[in-house]
Design a protein around this nucleic acid. Structure first.
Lengths: 199, 199, 199, 199
DNA sequence: CATGAATGAGCGTTCATTCAT
DNA sequence: AATGAATGAACGCTCATTCAT
């Protein structure tokens, strides 16, 4: 039950570094800034991480919501989209209000410009929702609940609408969108989806 | 009618600096690299710009594709969505394959992380397409071509699907999406849209 | 008769540190490297030595091959140079192929540059062979085996030739000199010496 | 006639750096120390040299007395050793009283321990005297002025005696050797050499 | 005694910025 | 206007040294 003190320190540094990286990017963040945010001496970072990049990628690996996004689509094969989609929206909304997830996503998006690795991570993050969802939709088509069509593009419709809405409403606090709750949006999404792709 | 030589030089520096900034980010770009790209001595930058940051924000202010995205929706009130939407997709695709626009957008997105100002700029860019489109859709509803509904969310459906597709296909060169052409997507979008919101 | 455990540890550290210092120099050797070579924690060095420099100079003081080079010339007064000189060459060669002696000599020579003290040490080391040898040669002159002359310069002839040969052959592994064995050289030295200075 | 100002600065830095390197070795010398010795800002070193190592090797290349040691043995084929050897001694003595030559040699000797490159330089320096001298001696053997024998070892006899004497007398200021002038030594060397190897 | 985490000064190097020319 | 040498602060990182345990 006792936490490994070495892991404690690593975590402390990573949690202090994440917002600094997110605010200034990788190159814009100095080790001294990280150390000061973590309340430690700069040299100590190197006791726990090989170098600045190791700290950075470890943060991404640890906090990037890759697998955590996944909905257990496999167990939902019999559940209709009218139930699954709101659950997916709720799950993504939940993740996008998590401070750390949001910071990592910001970071990934910003770093994509300079760092091909970040781009790959971002894309694989997107795929990790998109592909299982498309697979689920193919199952629904087979079950006759949806019209035959391009499941990948259907999945993209769902994800793009959801992410776009959440970014503008939750993250951007856009005035026009604050008129809609996440439930409002969920209902709108299901209506759009079923009208467009329902059997 | 004679171009101010001072402005000529400023433009020369900005155009040379833009791709360098876009490739390496603000922190990753040195004045020496900019000067070398512009074919001038590093010191000269300071004759035309207060400092590196001034050069950077001036570039964003100058090249951000605010209004250029706009479609003349006012003159299209009688044209049905089946015609207008593909035109919109084509216009956005055109912008997103324009080298300079893409570079500035990359920078804007990356800067959004660091600089709240850039976030506002980006949102106002999105609004400058979204609002006229929503207005057009309200007109179509009034004309009985679309079912009654939340025009702003309908507009978001269009824009989010389009931008998401283009980012993943054109910018990200995602392997799965290279199977679809922009025309394929246009057809899919219109079908989705009309089935979902058509009268 | 029991070895002081404190001295045991000191010796352990010094013996581990010597080859590391010899391979990388004082500045090129980190305490971490020494500790790791000695199989102890870095902090422990400071329990046995004031600091890195103290450890270094203690090593030099302890292992410098001052007196060990000495040949018992006093007992050889009746033995002719033809016998004594090869024995001297062999002794010096033996020392210069002893790993630890060589390491210390390397360090001493290198330190001579930085530290005037080391220069004195080195000179006194040279004198400790040169002076007894000159004294022996004076005896040989008195015995009529050698022509009258400057015994000190004669002694220097012997030592300089020997050391120069051994450094270039044994230490430097110079290709040209690998053609000659130490015995070859010994014969050459005696021939040169006796032809030059023999009665 | 006008000196290139760029070369002036390079020379200034190199001349300031040489004694600092010679006193502390490569690793023991900081760029700040060099800059301060040269009276410039640390960053400026990098305007004139790629990095610290480039500065270091450029100094060695520039000041190492490789070719400058060479005596024109080719033109001296007819001149007997009795004349040539004193000239050689004088030349080496001259070099070894040159401040810069001495510093470079110190540096090379000290660096040899850590830096194989320095060892190679040192050896090639030695060879650049030894080999032409051996060649000259072979010529003298052919001319019947010297007995047949190992020319390389004869040459080593000359060089080792000379260098050993000069280091102890001129560099080390050894008390015993101050009794002898360089001319004294020259006479002793010629006598030794001709008695040992003369025809 | 012994450990190894922690410190902070200092390293080689880069780079935004200034300034004499 | 324009150059490019020069500055010096700051960077990522290493390491001698200290110290709580």
């Amino acid at each position: 039950m006792q936490a490994d003190p070495r892991d404690e320190r690593r975590k402390q540094i990573m949690e202090a570094a994440l917002p600094v990286f997110a605010a200034n990017g990788f190159h814009g963040t100095s080790n001294r800034a990280i150390a000061s945010a973590a309340g430690i001496a700069p040299g100590l970072i190197y006791w726990y991480f090989k170098n600045k990049e190791d700290l950075f990628t470890t943060i991404l690996d640890t906090y990037a919501p890759f697998s955590r996004i996944a909905i257990p689509f496999a167990t939902l094969a019999e559940v209709p989209p009218q139930v699954v989609l709101p659950r997916l929206v709720a799950r993504i909304a939940e993740l996008m209000t998590d401070r750390r997830t949001l910071l990592v996503m910001r970071l990934l998006i910003a770093e994509t410009i300079t760092n091909p690795d970040a781009g790959l991570r971002l894309n694989s993050m997107v795929k990790s929702i998109l592909d299982p969802l498309a697979e689920y939709l193919r199952g629904q088509i087979a079950r006759g609940r949806l019209r035959d069509g391009e499941a990948l593009l259907m999945a993209q419709t769902v994800i793009s609408m959801t992410v776009f809405f959440l970014i503008r409403r939750v993250v951007g606090q856009d005035a026009d969108l604050l008129a809609y709750t996440i439930d409002d949006f969920s209902i709108f999404l299901v209506a759009t989806f079923m009208a467009a792709y329902g059997a």
